[in-house]
């Protein structure tokens, strides 16, 4: 298991500190109930940022704001400014936006189609390939990057639902990276998987972070410590503290953060 040691490499670190996603005064309401209060944070470029906090504190809600999946929920209202590469997401077209951002869900949700068709679906609707050969190449590459190619290369036409849980989740990751997104959002991707599958996905995340900006919501602090470069601690809809992972876990600035990390709350 590799630890992200990249911040010791100074020139690369300077390049990577550029903010990819920036949130300012984001408030989210479900009907009359407010779920997020004045959230402000920055997600740096090509690094893994973990959102941690007790359940129901708004981490998944914030994640869904980034690719505007909250629009799908009836009665949900998002206020404030959330920019990606300087552009406010509220002004962008959601369909185009979601093609630039990949999302992996808590429970693997492959389509009841073949493995090939699952990965090729996004490619086809956004017309990223001109012909069958190009699609094949994209599918192969995505499966390879997701670490699934060797296992399924011989049975691409089999149903995706026949794969194991861990394989299905990697398929969902392959499906997302087939669109060559800039950002990958992961909402507790390992919570329904066994430890070995979890380990494989965490390795995958480390590899992917070299090319993609990753935001991961996780319940497990150990996972956050293992996998991320930056961590943001949420509590009851507010950002309590955000900073470099090692700093948060060894010398947290806020009392609440310390209480959560040592297990007294959440």
């Amino acid at each position: 298991m590799t630890t992200p040691d990249k911040h010791t490499d100074k020139p690369a670190a300077a390049k990577r500190q550029r903010a990819k996603i920036r949130a300012r005064a984001v408030n989210v309401y479900y009907g009359d109930k407010q779920a997020l209060f004045q959230v402000a944070l920055e997600v740096p470029h090509k690094q893994v940022t973990a959102l941690i906090g007790p359940s129901g504190c708004g981490k998944s809600t914030f994640l869904r704001c980034i690719n505007r999946m909250n629009d799908v929920i009836e009665g949900c209202r998002v206020e404030g400014e959330l920019t990606i590469d300087g552009e406010n997401v509220a002004t962008l077209d959601p369909v185009a936006l979601r093609a630039r951002i990949g999302m992996v869900f808590q429970k693997p949700n492959p389509f009841p189609k073949s493995i090939y068709d699952n990965v090729a679906y996004g490619v086809r609707i956004h017309a990223l390939a001109q012909n069958r050969k190009e699609t094949d190449e994209i599918v192969r590459q995505s499966l390879a990057r997701a670490g699934l190619e060797q296992e399924v290369a011989s049975r691409l036409n089999d149903s995706a639902t026949a794969l194991s849980g861990g394989q299905q989740q990697r398929l969902c990751i392959a499906r997302a990276i087939a669109l060559q997104p800039d950002i990958i959002l992961m909402d507790e991707p390992c919570s329904s998987l066994d430890p070995i599958a979890t380990a494989r996905i965490e390795n995958l995340i480390a590899e992917l972070s070299q090319n993609y900006t990753i935001v991961i919501v996780t319940h497990s602090m150990q996972q956050a410590a293992r996998v991320s470069h930056r961590t943001v601690f949420f509590h009851l809809g507010r950002v309590v503290e955000s900073g470099e992972t090692t700093q948060i876990f060894t010398t947290p600035r806020r009392k609440q953060t310390e209480r959560y990390i040592t297990g007294r709350i959440g």
């Binding site: 369909v95 185009a96 093609a99 956004h126």
Partner: peptide
């Protein structure tokens, strides 16, 4: 994302 294609899809 090609603009024309996106417009076609919305149509």
């Amino acid at each position: 994302m090609k603009e024309s294609r996106l417009r076609r899809r919305y149509r």
